[in-house]
């Protein structure tokens, strides 16, 4: 494949290609293809296993080329019905609300600390930086959240911890300073626009590439957050998607470690040890939406994610 590709010289912007360059490019391309396969194969295996017949996995193991395909895995995921639906709703709500709240709060903070002549800039920058150097850790955070804020079984416990991060504010601030001409904002001011209007009508629209990149990363962090869910959410109605996966795993190890589980408990847990294809189908249902959305955001990554100096 790579050989035919290398043989089409129209795509190269150099007029003359020495054989040395062609050999070098071929080797480079092969290595990159190999790494791509290494990265993508496990994702592909997930996809294939979700549609593999359960008996085939039991007998021949997981395979990229299964003997028999089947929809039973997918069907058993759909049997979760309401549970799956409410988990989706929770995850989507937390992701959307958290991302928008975070972007708004962080870009306002970034804008404020990038104003020249504002005397609190230094203090606010240091205040932002300290959490990166020192933090309370999970245990203390857990106690504060549950004992003092009463956030057990409250979706705010999933939204707030991932909402403002030092790194993202720095990325946004760097973009404001380096890529949005200060004259624009000054001109707006001369034309009589207030501070808020300048921010919302001039800065925010120009910040779009950076907001897209940071926002997408935040959205994935929210979507993939299992840890806060495991710590704070025990109410079935509030369980996000990731917790479905964690619970499947819990059930598997519980059933494997306790051979004398009463039949009634087994029945309550869905009859038997969750099946391989059904598990993989659940994984697919959980990771699928990100895979679909992600290519649309990729173009913003390089443009929007430049981290500048942290110094204020």
């Amino acid at each position: 494949m790579e050989k035919t590709a290398v043989a089409t010289p129209i795509k190269f912007n150099h007029k003359h290609l020495s054989p040395k360059i062609i050999i070098g490019q071929t080797i480079l391309t092969i290595l990159i293809i190999a790494f791509t396969i290494f990265c993508f194969a496990p994702v592909l295996l997930t996809f294939i296993s979700a549609f593999t017949d359960e008996m085939t996995i039991n007998q021949n193991g997981f395979s990229f080329w299964p003997e028999k395909w089947s929809m039973t895995g997918m069907n058993s995921v759909l049997k979760y019905g309401d549970k799956l639906f409410s988990s989706y709703a929770v995850t989507i709500f937390v992701t959307v609300a958290g991302t928008f709240l975070g972007l708004l709060v962080m870009s306002m903070y970034a804008y404020a600390i990038s104003r020249k002549g504002f005397k609190l800039t230094k203090f606010l920058s240091i205040f932002l930086l300290i959490p990166m150097l020192f933090n309370g850790g999970q245990l203390s955070g857990y106690m504060i959240f549950t004992r003092y804020y009463g956030l057990k079984n409250n979706l705010l416990a999933l939204i707030l911890p991932l909402c403002v991060s030092t790194m993202n504010v720095i990325i946004l601030r760097t973009y404001i300073v380096n890529s949005i001409p200060g004259e624009l904002m000054e001109a707006a001011k001369i034309d009589g626009a207030g501070d808020y209007r300048t921010f919302f009508q001039i800065t925010l629209p120009l910040l779009k590439p950076s907001l897209a990149a940071v926002g997408f990363m935040m959205a994935t962090a929210y979507w993939n957050d299992w840890q806060n869910a495991l710590l704070y959410i025990s109410n079935d109605k509030l369980k996000p998607l990731q917790l479905l996966l964690v619970n499947i795993q819990k059930n598997i190890s519980f059933l494997l470690n306790n051979t004398n589980v009463p039949a009634s408990v087994r029945a309550a847990m869905g009859g038997a040890i969750p099946q391989y294809s059904a598990t993989m189908a659940t994984v697919l249902v959980v990771i699928g939406p990100i895979m679909v959305v992600y290519p649309f955001f990729q173009k913003y990554f390089i443009k929007g994610l430049t981290v500048g100096s942290v110094k204020g």
């Binding site: 709060v105 903070y109 404020a112 609190l120 959490p131 955070g141 504010v169 501070d195």
Partner: peptide
């Protein structure tokens, strides 16, 4: 710069309650 103070405030409060209070913890 009061407008900038107001803009920084939500971020300040979230950082304070989510990051700083657990430090004291």
């Amino acid at each position: 710069h009061r407008a900038h103070v107001v803009m920084a405030l939500p971020g300040f409060l979230i950082l304070f309650f989510i990051m700083y209070v657990p430090m004291a913890g």
